[in-house]
Design a protein around this nucleic acid. Structure first.
Lengths: 188, 188
DNA sequence: TTATTGTATCAACATTTGTTGATGTAAATT
DNA sequence: AATTTACATCAACAAATGTTGATACAATAA
C-alpha cells in the first residue's frame, strides 16, 4: 500500500470514527506518524478531502440508481434492485458510504445545496416507485413518504456494521435479508 | 417564552441543523441576538449543554423502554409498543431526539462509553425480543441482528421530519404506518 | 543526465473558538 | 427595604486548528 493510499484510508477511518469536524489534520498526521504539513502533499484543503470522496461515491451511486429507475422492471423489482445496489456499495466501500449518511452536512455552499438537491431528487424517485407499486396493487395501501424513508433507513445504517471491521460478508445473503425485511417485515 | 427557554430552543435548533461541533457559542449568541458571554448565564460549558439534554432524553426513553421489555406482552406486541414509544418521543421532542441519533459521538469519555453501553444494551434487548418472536413462530426465520438494526433504523430517521418544522401530526397514525411497515413491509 | 514525482522536515501565522472576570441593572422574592 | 435572580455588556486570553513557505532527498521517468 502506497503512502497516499494509507493516507486516504486513515483519513476516512478517522472521519468515520469521530466525524469530519472532530477529525483534525493533526489527528490524521498522527495516525500515519508523519508531520502535519505532510498531509498537504495529498490534499488541497480539509474541505476538499470531504468533497472529493463524498461526491465520488455519490455520483457513482446515482449513476447506478438511475439505470435501475429508468429500467422497465416492475416497482417491486426496482426496489429489490435498489437495495442490492445500496448494499453492494456499502459493503464494498463502507467508509465512503458513511460520508453519504453522516458527513454531508459538513459540506459548504454551494456543494451542500448540490448534494441536498441530488438526494431529494433520489428520494422523490423512490417515492414515485412506491406510489406506482401501490396503485398497481403490488404494495399495500400506505403513506408513501413514510414508507420511502422507512425503507431507505433500513439500508442506510448498514455501513456501520462494516466500516473499520474486517468482516467476511456474504453480500448476497445480506441483500436477501434486507429485501425480505423491506418487502415482508418481521411477520409470518 | 422566557429567555432561558429561547436559549434552549435556539441551541437545539442550531445543533440539529449544523451539528454540535459546527455550532459555535457565537452562533448561538447571534441566534438570540445577545452577547457571547451571555450564553454562559445558561450553561457551564458547551460540552455540558450536549450532555444535559442528551442524557435527559436518553434516560427518559430507556425508562419507558424497560417497562415495555419487562412486561408480559408477546414479542410482536412488545415491538409495537416500542415503536409507539419511540414515535411518541420523537414527535413530541424531535430536537432532543436528534441528539440521540446524530450527536452522541461528540460526547467525551467517560460519558461516551456510558451512552454506548446503554445503547448497546438496548439493542441487545430488542434483538432478544426478535429472537424470541422467531422461535415462537410469530416472526419468520431471519438474521436477528440485521432485523434488529433494520427495524430500529425504520424509526430512527423520523425526527428529521419534525425537527424545526411546525407540522400538525397525527401521532397515532404515524405509529400505525411504521408498525405496519416493520411488521408487514411494503408487500400485499 | 536531467527533470520530475513522491515524500519528508521545521517553523510560523492567522483565525476560530471556548471560556472567564469584572461589572451593571431591572425585576422578583424575602 | 434588602437580597436574590435573571439578564446584559465589554474586554481579553489560551488553546486548538487549518494552512503556508521554504527546503531536502531519494526514486523514477524523460
Amino acid at each position: 500500500m502506497t503512502k497516499r493510499e494509507e493516507f486516504i484510508l486513515q483519513s476516512l477511518q478517522l472521519i468515520h470514527q469521530k466525524g469530519f469536524k472532530a477529525t483534525t489534520i493533526r489527528d490524521i498526521a498522527a495516525s500515519m506518524d508523519c508531520d502535519v504539513s505532510n498531509v498537504y502533499n495529498y490534499i488541497d484543503s480539509k474541505q476538499g478531502l470531504l468533497e472529493t470522496h463524498l461526491f465520488a461515491i455519490n455520483e457513482e451511486f446515482h449513476e447506478n440508481v438511475d439505470q435501475i429507475i429508468e429500467s422497465s422492471y416492475a416497482p417491486k423489482d426496482k426496489i429489490k434492485k435498489l437495495i442490492s445496489c445500496y448494499v453492494d456499495l456499502t459493503v464494498s466501500r463502507p467508509l465512503e458510504s458513511s460520508l453519504l449518511v453522516n458527513e454531508w452536512r459538513n459540506l459548504k455552499e454551494p456543494k451542500l445545496s448540490k448534494f441536498i438537491k441530488a438526494r431529494e431528487s433520489f428520494e422523490r424517485k423512490v417515492k414515485k416507485i412506491i406510489i406506482e407499486g401501490i396503485s398497481e396493487g403490488a404494495f399495500r395501501q400506505m403513506d408513501a413518504e413514510l414508507a420511502t424513508f422507512s425503507m431507505l433507513s433500513s439500508v442506510r445504517w448498514l455501513f456501520n456494521k462494516y466500516a473499520g471491521k474486517k468482516i467476511k460478508v456474504n453480500k448476497v445473503q445480506v441483500e436477501k435479508e434486507i429485501v425480505d425485511f423491506v418487502l415482508n417485515g418481521l411477520n409470518d
